[in-house]
Measured scan of single mutants.
Amino acid sequence: VDYIVEYDYDAQHDDELTIRKGDIIKNVKKLEEEGWLEGELNGKRGMFPDNFVKEIK
């Protein structure tokens, strides 16, 4: 499942992704941690907030 970024987010920890509006995040999975998703961007896998992105259908 792929998501498109709607709002910029700067990573706060090493396991998070810095994302920018218009980025496409690939292979996204829901995490047990409420409010977070995990996906791949530019060869890096990491977490990001689910309210900054929208699923591409």
Rank of each mutant, 00 (worst) to 15 (best):
K54V: 07
Y3E: 01
V53D: 03
K57L: 15
I24V: 07
K29T: 12
I25G: 00
E34S: 08
N51L: 04
I56N: 04
G35A: 05
K29G: 12
K44V: 06
H13A: 11
L41T: 06
G43V: 02
P49G: 08
L37M: 13
D14T: 14
E33R: 14
F52S: 06
K57Q: 15
L37Q: 03
K54T: 15
Y7I: 08
W36F: 12
I56T: 03
N27W: 13
G46V: 03
P49N: 15
I56V: 07
E40V: 12
N42D: 13
G35V: 03
H13E: 11
K44W: 09
G22K: 05
V53P: 02
E6L: 15
K57N: 15
Q12S: 12
G43F: 08
N51M: 08
L31V: 14
G46I: 05
H13G: 08
A11F: 03
G35F: 05
F52M: 11
F52G: 04
P49R: 14
D50H: 13
G43A: 07
K29E: 11
R45Q: 09
G22R: 05
E16T: 03
N51A: 13
K57G: 15
Y3D: 00
R45S: 14
R45P: 04
K26Q: 08
L37G: 04
D50W: 07
N51F: 03
N42W: 13
L17N: 00
E32W: 10
E38H: 10
F52I: 07
V53T: 05
I25F: 01
E55V: 11
G22N: 14
Y7P: 00
M47W: 07
Y7N: 12
K57V: 15
L41M: 07
D50Q: 10
K29N: 08
L17K: 01
N27P: 01
E33D: 13
Q12Y: 07
G39D: 00
K44H: 11
V1T: 08
W36L: 04
I56E: 03
F48Q: 00
D8I: 02
H13T: 10
F52Y: 13
F52K: 06
Q12A: 11
I25N: 00
E55L: 04
I19H: 01
N27Q: 06
E55T: 03
G35S: 06
D8E: 06
F48V: 15
G43Q: 07
F52W: 03
H13F: 08
G46M: 01
L17T: 01
L17W: 01
W36Y: 11
Q12I: 14
E32H: 09
L17P: 00
E6P: 02
D10Q: 10
N42V: 06
E38G: 06
E38S: 13
G22Q: 04
V1E: 04
K21A: 11
E6W: 07
N27L: 13
N27V: 06
D2E: 13
F48W: 02
I19W: 00
F52R: 05
V28M: 02
H13N: 10
D8V: 03
T18E: 05
N42M: 09
V53Q: 02
G39T: 01
D23M: 07
R45A: 07
D50P: 09
M47N: 12
D14E: 14
I4R: 07
G35K: 06
T18P: 03
K26N: 11
E40L: 09
T18F: 05
D8H: 04
N27M: 05
L41W: 07
D2Y: 14
Y7V: 13
T18S: 09
L31S: 08
E6Y: 06
G46H: 01
F48A: 03
G43H: 12
D8W: 04
V53E: 03
I25S: 00
D15Q: 11
V5K: 00
E55R: 03
V28W: 01
G39L: 00
E55A: 05
K26P: 01
K44Y: 11
I24W: 05
I19D: 00
G35W: 03
R20M: 09
N27Y: 14
F52T: 07
N42E: 11
E6F: 08
D23L: 07
L37S: 14
Y9L: 04
I19L: 15
I4W: 13
I56W: 05
D15I: 11
L41R: 04
N51H: 04
L37N: 03
F52V: 09
K54E: 15
K29P: 01
E33Q: 13
V5Y: 02
K54Y: 04
D10V: 15
L41S: 08
G35I: 04
Q12F: 07
M47L: 08
L31T: 10
Q12G: 08
I25Y: 00
V53A: 15
G46W: 01
